[in-house]
Nucleic acid binder design. Structure first.
Lengths: 215, 215
DNA sequence: GGCACAATACGATGAATTGCGTATTTCGGT
DNA sequence: ACCGAAATACGCAATTCATCGTATTGTGCC
């Protein structure tokens, strides 16, 4: 079995070097590159003859942080496993990392053995997380579906109808035909909807309406 | 350090016995009781002179299943750690277990060593999960389908990126800035997306992409 | 009755989008 | 080495949208 290629993305040279040394002690891994930030990583991946299996990603970095880089790398190369390794354990960082597509989330005080185990686990299709992170992820999950109530809005029933038509991607003219009103009226309704929802185009309006559960 | 008291809740006597034997091989744990189902567990906890530290909980059981029992135990005794140990790995079971308040979720094919590690981890404030479970939990958090169904589409990775930008309601110019390309290129990408998805405007494209799980 | 507001309708204008054609570069596969 | 696909980029024309203003009608409420 060939060793897994790991690309390290970390802006602190000393820490990057430490990680490299830890990983290279094992025949399971080969460090295929070091990047100083997200932009650096993307450039290196573009230029690389072969893609790494895993990117070990810091969050806080200059130029482009690990969250943005994670999203971009995942968009281009979904098969690359991305493991965040960072000191941040706040809910927002964790949640954003997961949304960005991270496959695992480790705290930097993990032992070399834990790191080793985590990287093998992620290549095995798992989602390694430091215990504290796993706990927070679960608590986020518990909370996630909760914030659904309230849904304060002051849209009229007619405006909701309009929104439903809008969400189908119809043109004003077609909406008017469907609702038996003129395109001018459609336009005015939509203006009012935009004002009430504080948005400025169809997509934002539909998005906002979905979030509020209006449609 | 006194051993942790573990209460096993499992309707199959042979499996319960196996778990007990595994745990009692270690000085870290003491099996404080065996329950056959959720109702049994609640009665035993009411009558017990001392509460266990951990409940190891099956899901499928007669009389009262593990999900209901978890919610009830957590309501009365929030300090008790509950670790699900089950053969079910479907999204709904996992999600319900987490909602019910489970602190960890293990698959029954875990090795005795993994079980041992998981129980120590949960007492340390962590949230042990089998790798497959952790992956699914992250998927649930992302509200994205597991990479199993391999959606049929012929969009390039770049086009998916464009779609994600589109879905935010951004204008071509802003999308170009975000992706470091000209508005002309944005336009051309979007033309290609429209052709491939057989749609004719942003809203329809985003709608189609959502249905296909591309974003 | 008078008020507020929803629903209806139209005009004008500039911004944004869509469709089509063309073109270069790069990269993977045969 | 060649081919096709993807990503990049620009121009032009037509359509559609967003935002402003203005106006009429109906309905519910005080």
């Amino acid at each position: 079995m060939r060793p897994y290629d790991v690309h390290i993305t970390e802006d602190l040279p000393r820490l990057a070097q430490m990680l490299r040394e830890h990983l290279e002690l094992s025949p399971d891994f080969r460090v295929s590159g070091l990047a100083r930030n997200g932009r650096d990583l993307l450039e290196q991946l573009s230029a690389a003859p072969a893609l790494p299996d895993i990117v070990l990603m810091d969050i806080q970095m200059p130029e482009m942080d690990g969250l943005a880089a994670t999203a971009l790398v995942k968009a281009r190369h979904p098969q690359i496993k991305i493991v965040m390794a960072t000191v941040f354990d706040d809910d927002e960082s964790i949640f954003n990392a997961i949304l960005a597509g991270a496959d695992g989330y480790l705290l930097k005080d993990e032992s070399p053995e834990s790191l080793h185990r985590a990287l093998l686990e992620v290549m095995d299709g798992g989602a390694p997380m430091s215990p504290a992170i796993a706990r927070k992820a679960l608590s986020l999950l518990r909370r996630a579906p909760a914030p659904a109530p309230a849904a304060e809005h002051d849209l009229s029933a007619r405006e909701i109808e309009l929104l439903e038509q809008l969400s189908k991607g119809l043109r004003y003219e077609q909406i008017g035909e469907n609702l038996f009103i003129s395109t001018g009226t459609v336009r005015k309704h939509i203006e009012n909807i935009y004002r009430k929802l504080q948005v400025h185009n169809k997509l934002e309006a539909v998005e906002a309406a979905r979030k509020k559960g209006l449609i």
